[in-house]
């Protein structure tokens, strides 16, 4: 991209984002407001994550971008090509090769290392929004750790339907202090956040919030003693491409046989397994 600064944003804007990141790392799970800038990509399409990526990326970084676990998803392609055009960095689909991974809705299957950063795109950062629409009120509730309404909502959920019926974006408690939205990753990925050696950065561009999980942070999904947290049931599902089990699967219908088929949601992982399999 001619006529544009390295990584698109001007230097003072990138510094402003980094300042917010430092604060976020210092207070795990706390949502830091920041002066979110507009980007050439739709607001609500990952601009929070992209602003973080643009602000911390260096020329030596190797970038991986995924959406729904897939490198080939249209939005992942769009973001990857934008960051590559704006920075010239090398990109990869191999999560182990990447130093910086931007993701929407998934965490890679292969556990992350301490020298990797995962940037998550966040649509709705406020876990208390389900019980309180006003920002001024939720901010005070976080400050006072007034989390009774959210526990009550979970309890009511159990009373009504017999179990906690939250799907993706299942709220977590960070270091026994802040309740935090993990972004709409499946519940399957929530346990990967707990004590992860990698730095996790969360960006909500439209909502103008940044938050973080520094390495080895205590992250627990909300649950009750008698109603434990449960991930999506993937038992019995086998990837039709690589034969993997016990990973998060995309579901397909085969119109010919009328059967459900499954395939790894993490396309980089699936590719890697296929490559390592003996041919023939």
């Amino acid at each position: 991209m001619k006529n544009y600064n390295f990584a698109f944003l001007d230097e003072s804007s990138k510094r402003a984002v980094r300042r917010a990141l430092l604060k976020a790392v210092a207070i795990p799970g706390y949502q830091v407001p920041f002066g979110s800038r507009e980007l050439p990509i739709g607001r609500g399409w990952g601009t929070g994550g992209i602003q973080i990526t643009l602000s911390i990326i260096g020329k030596k970084d190797i970038l991986k971008v995924i959406d729904q676990g897939s490198d080939d998803s249209v939005n992942a392609i769009s973001i990857r090509s934008f960051v590559r055009a704006a920075t010239g960095v090398r990109t990869t689909t191999d999560s182990q090769e990447a130093t910086l991974i931007q993701t929407r809705h998934r965490i890679p299957e292969i556990p992350l290392r301490g020298d990797q950063i995962l940037v998550l795109q966040v649509p709705l950062p406020e876990p208390l929004r389900m019980v309180e629409p006003l920002e001024s009120v939720t901010k005070r509730m976080h400050a006072e750790m007034d989390y009774a309404p959210i526990w009550l909502a979970l309890y009511e959920n159990i009373v009504r339907s017999g179990d906690i019926e939250l799907g993706a974006d299942y709220p977590v408690m960070v270091e026994n202090r802040y309740i935090m939205m993990p972004s709409p990753i499946p519940r399957f990925d929530n346990p990967k956040l707990h004590k992860s050696p990698a730095l996790h950065l969360f960006g909500a561009g439209r909502e103008k919030k940044i938050y973080a999980l520094p390495p080895y942070t205590d992250v627990r999904s909300l649950c009750f003693e008698d109603y434990p947290f449960r991930v999506e049931d993937m038992s019995g599902r086998v990837c039709r491409l690589c034969g993997a089990k016990d990973v998060f699967m995309d579901e397909f219908f085969d119109p010919a046989s009328g059967k459900r088929l499954y395939q790894c949601s993490d396309s980089g992982y699936c590719e890697k397994r296929k490559e390592n399999q003996p041919r023939g």
């Binding site: 809705h105 993706a168 519940r187 995309d250 579901e251």
Partner: peptide, 8 residues
């Protein structure tokens, strides 16, 4: 795409 959240 919201495959993952929808699956959930």
């Amino acid at each position: 795409p919201h495959y993952v959240t929808f699956q959930s």
